[in-house]
Design a protein around this nucleic acid. Sequence first.
DNA 1: CCGCAGGATACTG
DNA 2: CAGTATCCTGCG
Length: 293
Amino acid sequence: MADSSFTEWKSWRESPQFDPESFLESLDGGQSFSWNRKESYLEGSFKGYLYRLKLEGDTLSVSIPQKLDYENALSNLGEYFALETDFQGIIDTLPWRSDQNLKRAIEAYPNLRILKQPLNEALFGFLCSSTKQIPQIKEMFRLTAQQYGPEVHMQVHALPNWDVIAQLEETDLRKLKLGYRARYIHKTAQKIKAEPDWLNSLHTMDTNEAKKELLSLPGVGSKIADCVLLFSLGRLESFPIDTWIAKILKRAYGLEGFSNDQLQAFSRNHYGPYAGYAQQFLFSAARSGVLKL
DNA sequence: CCGCAGGATACTG
DNA sequence: CAGTATCCTGCG
């Protein structure tokens, strides 16, 4: 059914190349928690805009609410997909020639991309992520948006900014199914409120410095810090180690008994400066069963 | 009812 | 340092 409050589907001229698997995995495979699968398209919001994205063949089409500024929307989308990053070129630098596991993972998702999500949203999402699976994280994300975020379009809300979250009590946050993460999010919001420039300053820091800053937040350990660095700040060397990745690395390379720090050192050395991209291939392939655990 | 999930933290030895 | 209990919630 046509929805006249949305623009016609228009093919996006600057779209990166996608195939169906890579498209779904890039947006709804654990990097972002703001996309929902509809019948024939994905719908999601970031930076207060709402998007519908549809892949037909290798053409990606976009439709957004009529009232939004189309130019700005597409410009945001380009940034989100990190169009300036040559992922095919990066793949070529990864050691797939000598690494069968990596090779199989890349073949399964040949056009996988690492997103550059807005920092505030990525931080919120990954603060929600501890011991939660993607559908549950998305639920927390959605509830928070629905309850406290600005309405983007007819009952659909975007995530509120941190200054809005800072006004909430921990008990308010607990009602959003955040559980013990409510305390982390509450405290993080207070810190951001107290130091309004802090969040944006991460963009210009070198990776180690930014990681140190992120680790100073309650509820942010190495894994979550690396997720923010990789999926928002474009630091492709960051290598988040969760239980999936740890399991794969141990099995694939015979690293039983390695600590997460040791696994990270191994990965940096083995995969190189774009280790984080390799991580995402392995993660996606393991989760979908392409790689056996 | 129990065990557990894509984690962090405080505490123990 | 390595191990362990605890923090919420929902699901099987």
